[in-house]
Write a protein that binds this DNA or RNA. Structure first.
Length: 471
RNA sequence: GGUCCCAUCGUCUAGCGGUCUAGGACAUCGGCCUCUCACGCCGAAAACGGGGGUUCGAGUCCCCCUGGGAUCACCA
């Protein structure tokens, strides 16, 4: 039978790192197996679900490149279906109406907990339902003898005693079904073969298996993935900083880098750290999924991003960096040497955002010179060699990096100075800063006209120093 | 507290009984390269939580302890 997996987030907030990892594993498994991947939005909690969240999740999935073959399905549009199955259980005596109020149940739960006992519904409404109430929820009559065994694809065999399970509510008093019920119906009806999800769901699995049995529906295989923890080793949350997938997009991360980092949190392939998406699809396997929770490490993710930034074709990075340049107020898309500029920035940038920031000088009209840099490098002593360099550059044709380099050599020879002596002042005049890509490539990308213009401007900024003209 | 899961360097991990005086990666610290910053290269420090078994032999299998996490909703 062909594999079918799903990612089923609830739209109660943005797609976070942990959810993305779950989605990724499901997607990779389906792709690796030549199967189908489904996106399903679990929005049966009308209190907390929002369309905005659903849109954002879809947007994040698209950005990550985790394309789905079916969906997105919305559970809120399938309510009639769930009710049908509730009715079925009810008529078969496998579920019953519960008239207890939330307050009463809450009270009992507290009492049980304070006595150190496990809170468990006492089946009051099964045995003698109150006649004076009309609002009810529906509970599943869960078998309380024997055990339920989960043959988990990553955790192995896990056994639960059925008397640990209690009669869970499958239909709320407002008529909305609950998670443990809808997930079973949908996974079964949609033909999901493998349910891969966070291991925080492992405890739900035996109840769901009981539901499958009661409804006589096929039970999928389960695989419970270890959780991703924050630096304090607790469940990931906003407290741990930027956890939204789209936040990483906005910070200039590459989607394949985010995927690459996330997949290595709980999965490995020998010593390999960097993978293309194609490689992941080819190499992914449930056999190599780990069992223990991992701590999210933003520093390593940054490093992974850097690796992908370096290995991507400059044209590709140029395209993706565009929004970040525009954000800074320039639009280099029509610049004849835009791609060349990006090439000079790739290996020294960890994110697209950083790349745009450090490459901004290429595309501005002139350049603002940093005060400190000016003071340190634009000194009277560099005027003669700088002036000579400009002279040489002006007559250089063709204006290639190699020929530019020759101009520097000539100046070094004529003035008996080292490259550093002339390169730094140049850099400051051309980029406004003391840090930039290699000086020859900077001049090349800028082009003769602009480079000369900036150098002359730089020279003009140098104060005449009558005291020590040769120093 | 009950139940369930987990346990190799600070972090992510390799290891699927002998090749482990435990390998790789991030981060850290040295050095080299160099027109700046990076990249790169070389090197250092850094781990099998504890105790019992099983076995000729255990990081690798079993049990206990300890520690961590998750979960016990008319949330998902």
């Amino acid at each position: 039978m062909s594999v079918k997996t799903r990612f089923a987030p609830s739209p109660t907030g943005y797609l976070h790192i942990g959810g993305a990892r779950t989605a990724l594993f499901n997607w990779l498994f389906a792709r690796n197996q030549g199967g189908t991947f489904v996106l399903r939005i679990e929005d049966t909690d009308s209190e907390r679900s929002t369309e905005e969240s659903a849109r954002e999740i879809v947007e994040a999935m698209e950005w990550l490149g985790l394309n789905w073959d079916e969906g997105p399905y919305f559970q809120s549009q399938r309510l009639a279906l769930y009710r049908e199955y509730v009715e079925r259980l009810l008529s078969q005596g496998k579920a019953y109406r519960c008239y207890c109020t939330k307050e009463e149940l809450e009270e009992e739960r507290k009492r049980a907990l304070s006595q150190g006992k496990k809170p468990r519904y006492n089946r009051r409404c099964l045995e003698n339902p109150p006649s004076d109430r009309k609002e009810f929820a529906v509970r599943f009559l869960c078998p309380d003898e024997g055990e339920t065994v989960v043959e988990d694809l990553v955790k192995g065999t896990v056994v639960f005693k059925n008397d640990e399970l209690d009669d869970l509510i499958i239909l709320r008093s407002d008529g909305m079904p609950t998670y443990n019920f809808t997930v079973v119906i949908d996974d079964a009806l949609m033909g999901i073969t493998h349910v891969l999800r966070g291991d925080d769901h492992l405890n739900n699995t035996p109840r769901q298996i009981q539901l499958y049995r009661a409804l006589d529906l096929p039970i999928p295989r389960f695989g419970h993935l270890p959780m991703i923890l924050g630096h304090d080793r607790t469940r990931l949350s906003k407290r741990h900083g930027a956890m939204s997938v789209l936040a990483y997009r906005d910070m200039g991360y590459l989607p394949e880098a985010v995927n690459n980092y996330l997949v290595r949190l709980g999965w490995s392939f020998g010593d390999q750290e960097i993978f293309t998406m194609e490689e992941l699809i080819e190499k992914f396997s449930l056999d190599n999924v780990g069992t223990s929770a991992g701590v999210f490490n933003p520093e390593k993710m940054l490093w992974v991003n850097h690796q992908h930034l370096k290995m991507s074709p400059p044209e590709e990075i140029a395209r993706r960096a565009l929004p970040f340049f525009r954000e800074l107020g320039v639009d280099p898309s029509n610049h004849p040497r835009y791609v060349d500029a990006v090439r000079t920035l790739q290996e020294r940038s960890k994110t697209l955002k950083e790349l745009a920031e450090s490459g901004l000088f290429y595309f501005t009209d002139g350049v603002d010179i940093d005060e400190g840099a000016k003071k340190k490098f634009l000194k009277p002593s560099v005027v003669p060699p700088l002036t000579r360099l400009v002279e040489l550059l002006k007559e250089t044709e063709p204006f290639t990096e190699e020929n530019i380099s020759r101009c520097f050599e000539k100046v070094m020879e004529e003035f008996q100075i080292k490259l550093g002596k002339i390169a730094q002042p140049c850099r400051v005049a051309l980029t406004g800063k003391t840090v930039s890509p290699g000086i020859f490539e900077v001049i090349y990308v800028l082009g003769k006209e602009e480079a000369v213009k900036r150098l002359e401007k730089g020279i003009s900024l140098i104060p005449l120093d009558a005291e020590s003209p040769l120093k």
